[in-house]
Design a protein around this nucleic acid. Structure first.
Lengths: 126, 126, 126, 126
DNA sequence: GTGGTCTAGACCACG
DNA sequence: GTGGTCTAGACCACT
């Protein structure tokens, strides 16, 4: 459970946790069936209240990433490799679709957008 | 003045107004020298208080998109075609850069991202 | 805001509130654009904490029934009469679909299920 | 013993087991006199503790669906075909009665509800 | 004033 | 032990 919090992002705690768990599931660090640590343990480890942890877990469950069982704990949801792949593609597609819509609304052409994308790819973090 | 508010974005009202005005200036619906409606009229039309409208106008002025003259109203700031073009490209680049970073973090290749982008371009609003 | 709580149903408070608001929107007692009372006022009126009220409102927003604006309040979401009608039909269809699946799994015929349905219709609360 | 657990229903484990056994008895997959697997085997297969399995078995016995004999195991209780039929009808009637009440509260007519029911019957799992 | 987030506790049913 | 719900406060940005 590699989790950390930063105050500089401006994102609420529960969102940071959601994003990190989400990333760890999508990139395979967490696999189907893996047990998550109890929310109280996570809260204690991060020195925060259980509320933001619980909220992050809730949203992960609503998104189909995890399953929770009262009295038993929370587990990474069963997911086939193809479904995982499809999920990754669809989340990336969502992001790119937003950006595409914005670029179109600005009157850019697809070619221009593609050039900007490959530029951004070449120089990340710029 | 095509303006609307939505609760689903989670963005504060002043930000939604800022974004929409910004987009209308960048895509040419609003041109240099065009007059903006009085903030009270906008507030009335949207059934909100003048506070968020005023704040949006202030931030647009701080960003150099509009100019305000006490007693005369607010106007789209003069901007050369090249500057407008550069602004558009830089804002589009920001969006695409975000999306690119996300896709990279998911392990996608540039080619895959470009395919998703052109797919999104072909079927907008999907 | 005709809301009440009962301990005898076994349902959590937030669920009772959700169901009641939902019903009032679907049957027209609450109309598009209507403002909801502040969550703190509802909590006070019902002598409960704001937590369950907020949760009910959150789920109503997630379901598309209401929209919330920070600093401004919550409002019944804009919804055309047809959309409302479609929503009602789809919620009823969900319930009936569950029941249908259950009856099928028990080996009942459609005719038998329809007879049971009309029996239940004739003698409600039995 | 086709048993599975899901976190998405929100139902406690013992309830899910109870419901599934119940359904298998009512639809004939399990017949009077059939032996149930030992609770420890079920617990192991599902990777859970024996506690919820034991509780499910207890409630099935209390409901008259199974009989347990210390040292010999548990068996589906003898039940006449008519009694089974009556049970099925009454459980189906309960489900349909719930759905009927909900549809009525939404202002639907019986005819509309019957149409939705037959639609759901025609396209299950949709 | 509003809703959004969070703290620091509590009690409950479930395992 | 676990997660689910709730209380009674708090601070924040926004209106």
């Amino acid at each position: 459970m590699d989790l950390f919090l930063t105050g500089s992002s401006g994102l609420p705690i529960y969102r940071q946790l959601f994003d990190q768990l989400c990333a760890q599931i999508l990139d395979g660090r967490l696999k189907s069936g893996d047990a998550l640590p109890p929310i109280r343990a996570v809260a204690k480890e991060l020195s925060i209240s259980v509320i933001p942890v619980k909220r992050a877990w809730e949203e992960l469950e609503a998104a189909g990433f995890i399953e929770s069982f009262v009295g038993r704990g929370c587990f990474i949801a069963p997911m086939s490799a193809e479904k995982l792949q499809r999920l990754k593609a669809s989340m990336a597609a969502d992001k790119l679709s937003d950006a595409a819509a914005y670029c179109r609304s600005l009157g850019l052409s697809l070619a221009e957008a593609e050039r900007l994308l490959s530029d951004a790819w070449a120089s990340p973090g710029e």
